[in-house]
Amino acid sequence: MTKILKINNIEKYYGSKGKSNITKALDNVSLEVNKGEFVGIMGASGSGKTTLLNCISTIDKVSAGNIIINDKDINQINDKDIAKFRRENLGFIFQDFNLLDTLTIEENIALALTINRTDVGDVDDRVKKIAKELGIFEILKKFPYEISGGQKQRCACARALINNPKLILADEPTGALDSKSAKMLLETIRKMNEDLDATILVVTHDPFSASYSKRILFFQDGKIFNELNRGAKTRQQFYHEIIDVLSLVGGDADANEIS
Rank of each mutant, 00 (worst) to 15 (best):
Q153W: 08
T118Q: 12
A253R: 11
Q153H: 08
V202S: 09
E133I: 04
A210K: 00
I4D: 07
K72N: 07
N116M: 15
M192P: 01
S181P: 02
F97W: 12
V249C: 08
T102G: 03
I115C: 08
N8D: 15
R126S: 05
D71Q: 14
R215H: 10
F225V: 09
D178S: 02
N66R: 13
K6Q: 15
R126F: 07
N116Y: 03
D73W: 01
S209K: 01
D71E: 14
R215M: 09
C55W: 04
E194M: 11
I41L: 15
I22Y: 11
M1K: 14
I77C: 01
R86K: 10
S20D: 15
S148M: 10
E138P: 04
R190G: 09
G231A: 09
N54M: 12
L217A: 09
M42H: 04
D206R: 02
N28K: 13
K152L: 11
V127L: 10
A156D: 02
D124F: 11
T51M: 09
K141T: 10
V249D: 03
E37T: 05
K49H: 11
L248W: 09
I168K: 03
G149P: 02
P173G: 11
R86P: 07
L201H: 10
R86I: 13
L177I: 06
A110Y: 02
L111T: 08
D101V: 07
F143D: 03
I74K: 02
G48P: 09
T104R: 02
V29K: 03
F97L: 07
R154K: 13
E133W: 08
K191M: 14
A160G: 05
N8A: 12
V29D: 07
L185I: 04
